[in-house]
Nucleic acid binder design. Structure first.
Lengths: 184, 184
DNA sequence: GGAGGCATGTAAATGGTTACATGATTGG
DNA sequence: CCAATCATGTAACCATTTACATGCCTCC
């Protein structure tokens, strides 16, 4: 049930309409969580029912601005501090990698090289995103930039891994002869 | 629609029943993709309808073994080699991190330190998994171990990041004064 | 006046989790 | 004989995506 909390978190910074929240997902938060407007609008209505947000007057073009309530802030704090054990990972590129042994080695190497390129492209767009944001000294910008840095380290690590993996497959290694070089 | 392909990939190695496939998700594949038996059984039936697998005779305790067909192998190859652009990431811990600025700094630091510990624990269990598998020279073991290595690098990178992030918050940095040390 | 962006919604379908339900076999 | 594990399934619910649907407002 993270969508509600993602919306609460965004509204804790400043009030916004469903449309604006959709844009915030697309522009910044989308790198860690995504949602479409068709899910966001009904969710905001449910959250109004729960008393976590209040809907403002209908403005131009039917615009309706939502504001977080004290109950909403309490719920957000609860979600942030409660222990959470479920590391539910879903990584489709790794799932594919798992089955690359069913392909001729050349095709497997091509896949892994393509992945490495994909990660390098992702790195470039994270850099562009970083450079394009006029970071200020607010708390939300601090955590935004720290999370962005996480994305950068993640794609770098994955690009390195994909290069390494392609090399191992190209060299004809098997699971017992892998060269498991670790970072110092 | 990755579940079908995950099942195809596992059956490409060797035939298996729904129960066994569920176990394979729990024991090895679960680190990159997960599924419950309640989703797997109906899916195998659909795949039989598509001609991607064939169901064997009903054995003891109603056990039914599924075997991948040539059509199934073709579909798997197609899925592995077709270009895929959608990097649809969903990372709930990072989503939380994004909103840590709403907490008192001490609580934010505690969260990040807890994350670092969680990643170190994950590292230990990946090491145990690796040590417990009698890797052989098969192609499936090669890719299995390469993917496991990815998991190891991922959790190491994340533990380092969480330590760094906790330090930055503890030191009272803001987005304009972050110490963005990069790996050499 | 038309294009593009602002703005909101619903419906249908798919994907996934939790809970319910049942029974056979094996090993201690 | 009892517990654990093997083995399969369905139903209800929740989450997510895709497609359908509408209309306003601003700028060129």
């Amino acid at each position: 049930m993270s969508l509600k909390h993602a919306l609460l978190g965004m509204l804790a910074d400043r009030p916004g309409s469903g449309y604006e929240l959709t844009k915030r997902f697309e522009l910044s938060l989308g790198n860690v969580w995504s949602a479409k407007h068709s899910q966001i609008y009904p969710e905001l209505q449910k959250m109004t029912g729960l008393g976590w947000v209040t809907a403002g007057e209908e403005g131009a073009r039917g615009r309706r601005e939502y504001t977080i309530t004290d109950d909403g802030r309490a719920e957000l704090r609860e979600w942030l501090t409660a222990p959470h054990r479920d590391r539910n990972v879903r990584n489709e590129s790794m799932l594919r990698a798992f089955f690359l042994w069913t392909l001729p080695p050349d095709d497997a190497v091509r896949y892994l090289e393509g992945e490495a390129d994909g990660y390098r492209a992702a790195r470039a767009s994270l850099d562009a995103l970083d450079a394009g944001i006029p970071w200020d000294s607010s708390g939300s910008d601090l955590m935004g930039r720290i999370v962005l840095e996480q994305g950068r380290q993640w794609v770098d690590t994955m690009a390195e891994w994909a290069d390494w993996a392609a090399g191992q497959v190209r060299a004809g290694h098997d699971a017992t002869t892998l060269d498991l070089r670790r970072r110092p």
